Amino acid sequence: MMSGRSSIALTVQRDGARVPVSVPLTYACAFGIELGNSENVVAYSDGHRVLVTRGMLNAVRSDDELAYVLAKEMAHNALSHATKQRTSATIGGIIDNLTRIRPDMGSMSGMAGLRPMPQDLDAMADKLSLYMLARAGYNIDQVVPFWQRMAMEYPSSVLNGYTALHPSINYRVAAMEKAIKDIRSKQARKRPLLP
């Protein structure tokens, strides 16, 4: 139980060195974060959990880029997109499969039974993720270039890739640029960072 504490002390390993960190405790979403045993460059969210594959971990170039992916999937969860798409059970099965030591990759062919995320839902998650990132103190200036790079390196024709599930990159970029402008305006005026 963490009640009565404002932070917890952890040690992480970075570049072979042990680094002590103090993590402030705040009220937060209770989404589980899991690692998927697959080289596919993808992440999933089922309304309760977020899964990032080993392939995605290898594709991101920094902790900030990993935060962009996690925030996007957490935003999908917070906005109940898996429920709205009626894909919670399918995505849940994918997450369960990919957390196994030896996942059944035969079931991961094509889009694994998922439809691409509609652009309006995807843009809503992008907007919320930017607010989450800004509130957490991340630099959001590199979010758009990151997602553009992902779309170039892993295009929607790669059926087991992130862009295949989130194909509307131009629509998403326009929504992200608008959200970043709104966030910067609120920061400049010292207004609460609420979407």
Rank of each mutant, 00 (worst) to 15 (best):
M105C: 06
A78P: 02
H81R: 01
M108W: 00
R115P: 00
K127T: 07
N77A: 03
M108R: 03
A89Y: 07
M74D: 04
I94E: 11
E73L: 06
R115V: 05
L121V: 06
L114V: 09
G110P: 02
M124P: 02
L98C: 13
D122Q: 08
G110S: 02
K127D: 02
K84S: 11
P118I: 14
L121P: 03
M105Y: 06
G93K: 05
A75N: 02
S129Q: 04
K84P: 08
E73I: 02
H81F: 05
A82V: 11
A82Y: 10
R115N: 04
I94V: 13
A75V: 01
R86H: 15
G93N: 14
A82R: 10
N77G: 03
H81L: 04
Q119N: 03
I94W: 10
P103K: 07
K127Q: 05
S129N: 03
D126W: 00
S88R: 12
T83M: 14
I91W: 15
M111Y: 11
A78F: 01
L121S: 08
Q85P: 00
A125I: 00
L130I: 03
M117D: 09
H76K: 11
G93D: 07
G113L: 10
P116H: 11
H81M: 02
A134L: 08
N97K: 09
M117P: 03
D104Q: 08
K72Q: 06
S88D: 13
G93F: 04
L114W: 13
P118D: 13
S129V: 02
I95W: 15
N97Y: 14
S80Q: 13
N97V: 09
K84Q: 14
A123T: 02
T87Q: 13
T99Y: 00
S80F: 15
L133E: 06
L98I: 15
P118Y: 13
M111C: 09
D126S: 00
H76S: 10
S80R: 12
L121Q: 07
M108E: 05
D104K: 06
A89T: 07
R115D: 02
I94C: 08
P118V: 14
L121N: 06
A123M: 01
S109Q: 12
M111L: 14
R115A: 04
A78K: 05
I91Y: 15
A134W: 07
I101E: 05
L79Q: 09
D104Y: 06
M74K: 04
M74I: 07
L128A: 08
S80G: 10
A123D: 02
L98R: 15
L98Y: 15
R135K: 03
G110Q: 01
I101C: 03
A75Q: 02
I94K: 07
A78N: 06
M74V: 06
A89D: 11
A125R: 02
Y131N: 00
N97C: 12
P103S: 09
K72V: 01
A75W: 01
A89C: 04
G106D: 12
I95P: 15
S80P: 08
H76T: 07
I101W: 04
M132Y: 07
R115C: 01
L114T: 13
G110C: 01
R102P: 06
L133Q: 08
A89M: 07
K84N: 10
T90V: 14
S109A: 11
